[in-house]
Design a protein around this nucleic acid. Structure first.
Length: 423
RNA sequence: GUGACUGUAACUCAGUUGGUAGAGUCCCGGACUGUGACUCCGGUUGUCGUGGGUUCGAGCCCCAUCAGUCACCCCA
């Protein structure tokens, strides 16, 4: 039988890495809690049409990156490539959006069939936040502030830059697109194939071309900001002033566009220089048209999603995962004599009962005490306990694994009582 | 989807012009140390990613395939 291996671009997260994930998840949970957001969970699999209608038929995600297949009933299904569509579907289906405000968050795996690369995988994970029923710009600012709070708590704030832009309403973009296509047509001989193709299918995406020649031509191109309606512009100006009031630094990027069609007005992206080519760590914005587009009542909405793998990568390379998070246990009970097994397990139980936050391992299997102590040390234990055979009443010695202090022998009951002294 | 590079013990790697594999770490045992971390001695570990081909003979050459890395592209 051939060696079993994971599907390309789908990673196993092993002990040693999972601590970083848990640290990140813990902070995320704490932040959404402090902002009053509630968790929503929805399926990994949806009707393909949900994503086609929300993300957009002509986007790369839908055109060539979705995992799509027919199930046994012949229904066309897709693994979710992002969270917003499913979140809106679930919220709408259960009436959460009808004349209501909602602050929701989710977390989980997403799937995109791309060529794997650093910070880019076929199964990847996102945290996301979606706020419904609020016209903004105060809610826009809140959502951005929530993300900024995360960076602060993770100590990543100095490694991230907030970029914002106003992409106007769908109809603003429509008239702008027409103007842009008209301009690009005049210069089509100087464009690359990619841009020539896109100037018709999705002209806005030509804006973030990395081709220097294309960028040069864009210098003289019509500017989206000039096509944006006064209301959008007003909204955007208010958001900028709110961000300033909240001490959130940002840069305006006139070429920032989103790869998903449902966004409108204010969009933003947090980027880093730490991850090579995959600099975007978190992206989001408003999508006031999406709920209606999916068959609901027109509903204001905004949110963001962030890539967990990318954040974990940053935390690892910048060594931001606290030492405590890497410890897996606190106390290791050495097992010298097989006859002590029951007593060792009982002692472990007593400690776990009385100190619910401590991790305790009672040694199983043979091995020299020297090797056991080494194992305890490598697991991050603070103290080791040795049961003393033939003592009456039952006694054990305990000592810290760092160099402070020697072993101390105590009766077992008082050892449990006084354990705190040694940790 | 395109390109470049890579794939040898659990880990990091070496392997010279093709002649059926080595080092360090880890692990195990022992010495020393007032029970891990330093030092010394000894020991285990591999279908050399997979499948074909060339050859008397391939880890080293050729083809295919799978996977990884980085970049393009795209995005989180």
């Amino acid at each position: 039988m051939a060696k079993l291996q994971a599907i390309r671009g789908m990673n196993d997260i092993l002990p040693g890495q999972s601590q970083g994930w848990q640290f990140l998840e813990g902070i995320f949970h704490s932040v959404v809690r402090r902002f009053g957001y509630q968790e929503i969970r929805f399926p990994v699999l949806e009707q393909s049409s949900l994503f086609q209608r929300s993300i957009g038929e002509l986007t790369d995600i839908v055109e060539k990156e979705m995992y799509t297949f027919e199930d046994r009933n012949g229904d066309k299904l897709s693994l979710r490539p992002e969270g917003t569509a499913g979140c809106v579907r679930a919220a709408e289906q259960h009436g959460l959006l009808y004349n209501q405000q909602q602050r929701l968050w989710y977390q989980g795996p997403m799937f995109r069939h791309e060529r794997p690369q650093k910070g880019r995988y076929r199964q990847f994970h996102q945290f996301g936040v979606e706020a419904f029923g609020m016209a903004g710009p105060d809610i826009d600012a809140e959502v951005i502030k929530l993300s900024a709070q995360l960076w602060r708590d993770l100590d990543l704030i100095h490694h991230l830059t907030l970029e914002i832009n106003n992409i106007g309403t769908a109809s603003d973009r429509k008239s702008y697109s027409a103007a842009l296509t008209g301009y690009l047509k005049q210069h089509s001989r100087a464009l690359d194939d990619d841009a020539r193709h896109r100037m018709y299918s999705n002209p806005l995406r030509v804006l973030d071309s990395k081709n220097a020649q294309v960028q040069a031509i864009l210098q003289e191109a019509p500017v989206l900001a000039n096509f944006v309606s006064p209301q959008s512009r007003e909204h955007y100006e208010q958001l900028k002033s709110l961000l300033a009031d909240l001490d959130i630094a940002f840069v305006e990027n006139r070429h920032l566009v989103r790869g998903l069609d449902y966004y409108n007005n204010c969009v933003f992206e947090w980027t880093t220089l730490e991850l090579g080519a995959q600099g975007a760590v978190c992206g989001g914005g408003r999508y006031d048209g999406l709920v209606e587009q999916l068959g609901g009542k027109a509903t204001f909405a905004c949110g963001f999603a962030m890539g967990i793998e990318r954040l974990v990568l940053m935390l690892e390379s910048l060594e931001k995962i606290p030492h405590d998070a890497l410890k897996s246990i606190d106390v290791y009970i050495l097992g010298a004599d097989p006859d002590d097994a029951a007593q060792s397990q009982k002692l472990a139980s007593a400690i776990r009962q009385q100190y619910p936050r401590l991790g305790v391992i009672s040694h199983c299997g043979g091995g020299k005490s020297k090797a056991q102590i080494k194992r305890a040390y490598n697991l991050g234990a603070t103290a080791v306990i040795t049961l003393l055979a033939d003592s009456d009443p039952a006694c054990a010695s305990i000592r810290r694994l760092d160099q402070s202090g020697g072993a101390e022998t105590l009766e077992i009951n008082s050892l449990v009582e006084q354990l705190g002294r040694f940790l």
